[in-house]
Design a protein around this nucleic acid. Structure first.
Length: 437
RNA sequence: CGGGGCGUAGCGCAGUCUGGUCAGCGCGCCAGUUUUGGGUACUGGAGGCCCCCGGUUCGAAUCCGGGCGCCCCGACCA
């Protein structure tokens, strides 16, 4: 993509409404545009990152054996009356009526709908276990949306739902998602700590929140200091192996949100306890038959008897993750994208547009890098070098490849790693080689 | 939902108390000159229902009434 034609409205100054760093940087980097409280349009740069995050989530869900489908955002109130949540959900649920005065709602989550789909088609324990997920926009009419996309009213969420014949099988489904979540966040360069959490209005008895430690987080959290240095995937098993030992290991190291933490009754000595703030990027629940019973999601068991299925639900805040990643990875100059979610791999900077040799080398690099499978943002604008460097740092692409007449005179271009600031001068060939490795 | 703040050009703001001389500044944008390896300098230019509605007044961005929107703190919440 050529920056001269790419829609990238970067800002020098920060809009006043943005208080936390991820929100400020997303606005300044031209990634989002607020349209009303807690509702955002995703501009091309932000959209690219959103798609990257979504794709990683999808790949790990698929790897764990979940199957993707897509449910509608507008739901009928009837299913919610059946489960009893139509009244429970309160004002956070956006309710609407259609032209025939039918009660509808913009879905805040999909337990009811997936249960309805399940019960329509699944009749035997032999069709279990089953895990279905989708990645879809949700709406929750938050009392107070804030922090940009971190607590939006409309947000993109991956929600998966598992169905099992009994509690033991449900536990295994839960453990698969537990592992998938650790893998997902690790791929994005994040350390997400699974913490015992309240199940909240959704109900159930087994629940973990996946928390990124960050000062701007909304939740107070407590964990053993070992978490700070732990590599969660060090001894990770495959999805088909016995997950119990792995699960036991990582749930035995203390970590809890403040709702679950009891200061007087904490197994961790005070010296080893870290008190921090965190951003919840995922939440997994096992809630047994909370929905299957009232909604009559029943299958035939091995003896032919009707068995209400054991269910779990598993959420990842896809749009929130973007904010969380920026909170975890930025500096004074801007965003530092982890490679896996960067909107482009390389920013190619032409320091002197119009200089024949510089243009030629840039052109060559632009084509060859892309031919090698890299996504390249080529800054071919007629701007001063300072502007280009500042914008490049702001949008945070992992690599900057800087080409100018001064270097070319000595046969070199400059390759800069955004994360470390480390720069090296290389020949065009070795720069290509290094980036394509 | 309690408390606080804000709404003037794309962004950041001044002006409001004390009504007229008030449509302003910086950045950005357009044209030109200049400069050329970390947001260059200069000249010229475009761009505004001063959030909306009503009132007071000879006269309202400014005063009064009523709305709407946005942000922050708290409580609440995946």
């Amino acid at each position: 993509m050529r920056l001269s034609t790419f829609f990238l409205p970067t800002l020098k100054e920060t809009p006043t409404e943005a208080q936390i760093v991820s929100h400020r940087l997303m606005l300044r980097a031209g990634m989002i545009r607020q349209t009303s409280a807690g509702i955002y349009a995703w501009l091309p740069l932000g959209h690219r990152v959103l798609k990257k995050i979504e794709q990683i989530v999808r790949e790990e869900q698929d790897a764990a054996g979940a199957q993707e489908l897509l449910m509608p955002t507008i739901q009928s109130a009837e299913l919610w009356k059946e489960s009893g949540r139509y009244d429970d959900y309160g004002k956070e649920m956006l309710r609407i009526t259609d032209r025939h005065d039918r009660e509808m709602l913009f879905g805040p989550t999909n337990e009811e709908m997936i249960t309805d789909i399940f019960r329509a088609f699944v009749k035997s324990y032999r069709q279990l276990p089953l895990n279905l997920y989708h990645i879809q926009w949700k709406f929750r009419d938050e009392i107070r949306p804030r922090f940009g996309v971190m607590r939006g009213r409309e947000f993109l969420m991956k929600d998966a739902y598992s169905f099992d014949i009994d509690a033991a099988s449900a536990r295994r489904s839960y453990q698969k998602m537990f592992l998938a979540y650790l893998r997902t966040f690790a791929r994005m360069g994040l350390k997400a700590i699974p913490m015992r959490a309240d199940t909240g209005p959704i109900g159930g008895d087994l629940s973990h929140e996946f928390i990124i430690l960050a000062e701007t987080g909304e939740s107070g959290v407590f964990c053993h200091k070992d978490w700070l240095t732990l590599d969660v995937l060090q001894n990770a098993p495959g999805f088909d192996e016995d997950l119990q030992p792995f699960f036991d290991t990582y749930t035995s190291i203390y970590a809890a949100t403040d709702e679950k933490h009891e200061p007087g009754n904490c197994p961790v000595p005070e010296a080893d306890l870290v008190s921090a703030r965190g951003i919840e990027v995922g939440h997994i629940f096992n809630f047994g038959t909370k929905y299957s019973k009232p909604m009559n999601a029943v299958v035939a068991g091995p003896g032919g008897e009707p068995v209400p299925v054991e269910m779990g639900s598993y959420g990842i805040g896809v749009s929130r993750l973007m904010g969380a990643i920026i909170e975890a990875s930025h500096d004074d100059n801007g965003i530092i994208w982890p490679d896996a979610v960067a909107p482009f791999n390389v920013g190619l900077v032409n320091l002197k547009v119009g200089d024949a040799e510089t243009d030629r080398v840039c052109q060559e690099l632009y084509y060859k890098l892309r031919a090698n499978g890299l996504e390249v943002l080529y800054d071919d604008r007629d701007e001063r070098p300072g502007v280009k460097f500042a914008d490049m740092d702001l949008i945070g692409l992992p690599w900057q490849l800087v080409v100018g007449p001064r270097g070319l005179k000595n046969g070199v271009v400059e390759l800069k790693r955004r994360a470390t600031g480390e720069k090296q001068e290389l020949s065009v060939e070795s720069a290509l080689e290094k980036l394509s490795a």
